[in-house]
Design a binder for these strands. Structure first.
Length: 414
DNA sequence: AGGATCACGCACG
DNA sequence: AACGTACGTGATCCAA
């Protein structure tokens, strides 16, 4: 306790993290219901497709091998079939990752089959087979929310991880439709809209970002307009996509190499792009420089709620380590502050008399999203209350916006 | 033989 | 290599 007080961390401990413990306990005990039959049907279909694809891949490879082994897969693709390697793993082996395979796609029909196999195999092995086995006697799945697992202040989820359930594409939608409200109940899902960019706007005081959020404009279109000298209405889909990549890359301290790859442009174009971005949003450059300089002097960064991350590597003589620490410094302030905000919201939700009367209970947190379960007749009311609590939990230099949905399944609630 | 650990790949925000 | 996580599978290591 004396050490916490000395670091000014006792308030964070007493008024945020300690009260949060019982909220997390309640969420873990509550769990989420799943549709066993929907899981079974989905697994049945996926299993059949995996069998068919396995036969086709082995046939195209001209011999049997274990297609779940990256080592054997590399041998087939690059030795046997003589495809051109397009990247290495951190360990120095020839990579067979999604990114590499997509570049090989035109060269051989086996490539598309492998990509498809990987998607289905991931679904089967990580979600469709294990999750139904983890159902308790109550027909529900109970995760653990780990409060001390991350460097930034986020929660993590394990046993099973319910923070990485597929959501993208038709397969993701179908997966989330397997998670349901219990009998007589509905789910309400509320997620913070672009909370990390809003946190960045708040800390940096960047005029363009603040204005765009204040007017509830399309932030990526606005960035594109600034970048390409246009009116936001005149921005093309491609230009908006580029701006979106930059906006998100910004939060991680993305360099020109990664940007070039993401946008399929040259290194020089990417460098120009980044320069122009910071020239026109110069407050951001200042904010980043100040943040890193203060972190170097103090040895740590501080989030909205006063959470700290020590970053001794900022002083590393190894350039790569030092650069990584600089990116971590920036990202931690943003990601960690967003984590602070949703944790405060969780406390507000848990303490809210109205939600209590409605018999609404928090069941999941997925970094910027809260999922509530409530009796059917109360769900709409509870959702609206949840949204209000999340939006008003703290006042930043920009408004907090929350998107809301309700439904009988997690997919419908989105 | 079999548990521990690493490498790889990939799901999410 | 652009930040933060969890986990399944295969490959490899190694103490009892």
């Amino acid at each position: 306790a004396p050490r916490l007080e000395a670091a000014g961390l006792d308030r964070l401990m007493r008024s945020l993290e300690m009260p949060l413990v019982s909220v997390l306990v309640d969420m873990e005990r509550a769990g989420i219901a799943i549709d066993q039959a929907a899981f079974a049907r989905f697994l049945d279909e996926v299993g059949g497709q995996i069998e068919a694809l396995t036969a086709r891949i082995v046939d195209l490879a001209g011999g049997d091998f274990n297609l779940r082994s990256a080592q054997q897969m590399a041998a087939v693709l690059f030795d046997k079939l003589k495809l051109k390697p397009a990247g290495k793993t951190p360990g120095g082996a020839l990579s067979t990752s999604n990114e590499v395979l997509e570049r090989l796609a035109g060269q051989h029909p086996i490539v598309d089959a492998i990509l498809e196999f990987r998607v289905l195999e991931k679904l089967r092995s990580t979600y469709l087979e294990p999750l139904p086995r983890l159902t308790g006697g109550d027909g529900r799945i109970h995760t653990h929310f780990n409060q001390l697992a991350t460097a930034t202040g986020r929660l993590s989820s394990s046993g099973p991880n319910l923070q990485n359930i597929p959501v993208r594409g038709p397969q993701g939608q179908r997966m989330r439709a397997c998670f349901t409200a219990g009998p007589g109940n509905l789910l309400a899902s509320a997620d913070y809209s672009q909370v990390e960019l809003r946190v960045l706007a708040h800390f940096s005081r960047e005029k363009n970002l603040i204005e765009a959020f204040a007017r509830d404009e399309d932030i990526h279109a606005r960035t594109a307009a600034i970048l390409f000298d246009k009116e936001p209405g005149q921005v093309s889909a491609d230009e908006r996509r580029s701006a979106k990549t930059i906006n998100f890359g910004l939060i991680y301290g993305m360099g020109p190499q990664k940007l070039a790859r993401e946008l399929s442009i040259t290194m020089n174009q990417a460098k120009e792009f980044i320069e122009r971005y910071f020239a026109r949003l110069s407050t951001l450059r200042e904010f980043y420089d100040n943040l890193v300089e203060e972190a170097r002097q103090s040895g740590f960064v501080t989030t909205l709620a006063g959470r700290r991350r020590l970053l001794p590597e900022l002083h590393s003589r190894n350039q790569q380590m030092a650069s990584q620490a600089r990116r971590q410094a920036i990202n931690t302030v943003i990601q960690g502050s967003a984590a602070d905000i949703i944790k405060m919201a969780m406390l507000a939700v848990a303490r809210d008399a109205e939600l209590h009367k409605l018999k609404a209970r928090l069941i999941l947190q997925i970094h910027d999203e809260l999922v509530l379960e409530a009796p059917e007749s109360a769900a709409e009311h509870a959702g609206a209350r949840l949204r209000a609590l999340m939006q008003n939990v703290t006042a930043l230099a920009v408004p907090l916006k929350v998107d809301l949905g309700t439904g009988f399944t997690w997919a419908q609630a989105h």
